[in-house]
Amino acid sequence: MNFVKTNEGNTLTVELIGEVDSMNTPELEERLLKEIDGVKELIFDLKGLEYISSAGLRVLLTMQKTMKSQGSMVIKNTNEEVMEIFKVTGFVRLLNLV
């Protein structure tokens, strides 16, 4: 999985490219928590995300909770298959999807 970040003032955009599974989520979460220091708006651009499992969903949820206390978080450009996962698990209601 590739992690591409773009900082613009207080806004951090993170692109996740490839697959997020149980192996790379611990590292992903650790990195994200470091990167959001001082960030007011976190944007996930998921156009390159091909696969995500429940471990990845958990990370997204953790990030959303963390950002709640310091700003906001949105997720954009979810493809059809990932959206299906969000729907089946009910995460479509929990996450801020644009």
Partner: peptide, 16 residues
């Protein structure tokens, strides 16, 4: 309407 996850699957969830 879109659903939330079921109960007892994951902690600290919010339900609409």
């Amino acid at each position: 309407e879109d659903n939330c996850p079921p109960l007892a699957a994951m902690e600290d969830l919010e339900f609409d």
